[in-house]
Amino acid sequence: MGKTNHSKDAERLARQVGETLRRIRQERKMSLQELADITDVSKLTLGNIERGEANPSLTVIWKIANGLTIPISLLLNEGKEVLVSRKNEGNNVVSTNGACTLQPIFDTPNYGSFEIHRAFLKPNSEYSPGAHQMGVIEYVTVMEGELKVKIEDEYHHLYEYDSIKFNGDVEHAYMNPTNSVTVLHFVMTYTKPTS
């Protein structure tokens, strides 16, 4: 029996993330150890990712993007123009705990200043990405269901079509308090680091 579409997609995503990561690391003339130091991801794991031998979780992808100060969509970008982005087509990245599935929409082809995602948060679950790199602003709209957003020590309860904007460079978490999937629309903007 052949491989399922899901496992083929996971292999393709792993290859793509690996190739992109190696290209960025080489462009910046960094060793794997230097990359490990700034991302807090082990050298072994980074090596496996670059070779396409590991399917990194959303948490690891965030750590890499934060360390390199790039949008996560840059790591997921296939480099082809996309005119229509349909649900469940393209790349899916799942959080370590399996609670959140993120789908980048219209991947930015280079070091973009914003990115758009769909996200699906499982019933009665929580996704905690932690703090992102400095200058990230998140705009989140609930497309279906309910969402509780914890930003540092403050909670915000959102319902269908409610939106929230906040600085993503602080500790934050998303909680689905219902028995149904919550569907979210994310827009994330990035301020380019000054060097």
Rank of each mutant, 00 (worst) to 15 (best):
I49P: 01
A54E: 14
N124L: 12
L58A: 01
L74A: 03
I70H: 13
P104H: 00
A131K: 15
V93T: 04
K87M: 08
I61D: 03
G52F: 15
Y111C: 06
L102G: 01
P56L: 05
L74Q: 06
H117P: 01
T69G: 09
R51H: 08
S113E: 11
V93H: 05
N124D: 07
Y127W: 15
R118P: 01
N91R: 04
L83F: 12
I105C: 07
H132P: 00
L121M: 02
K87H: 08
I70Y: 15
I105A: 02
S57G: 09
T45R: 07
H117C: 06
G67N: 09
G112S: 12
L68G: 07
L58C: 02
G47E: 03
N97F: 15
Q103M: 09
N92E: 15
D107H: 02
V94M: 13
L44K: 14
S42V: 10
L121I: 04
S125T: 07
L83Q: 14
G90E: 13
P71L: 07
L102A: 10
S85E: 09
L102T: 05
S125L: 06
I105P: 01
A119C: 05
S128D: 11
G130V: 00
L102P: 10
M134T: 12
G112I: 06
R51T: 05
Y127R: 05
T96H: 15
N77W: 12
H117K: 03
E126Q: 12
S73C: 05
A65M: 06
G47M: 02
T59V: 09
P104F: 00
N88E: 10
L121W: 04
N97D: 14
K87F: 14
S85R: 00
R118A: 00
P109T: 02
D107F: 00
R86M: 10
V93F: 02
G135F: 13
A54Y: 13
N77L: 12
P56S: 08
V94W: 15
F120I: 02
N48S: 09
P129F: 04
F114K: 08
V41S: 11
K80Y: 15
Q103N: 05
R51S: 06
I72A: 00
E53T: 04
K43A: 05
E53K: 14
L74C: 03
I137L: 06
S128K: 12
H117S: 08
N124P: 03
N124T: 01
I116M: 10
G112E: 13
M134R: 10
Y111P: 03
G90M: 08
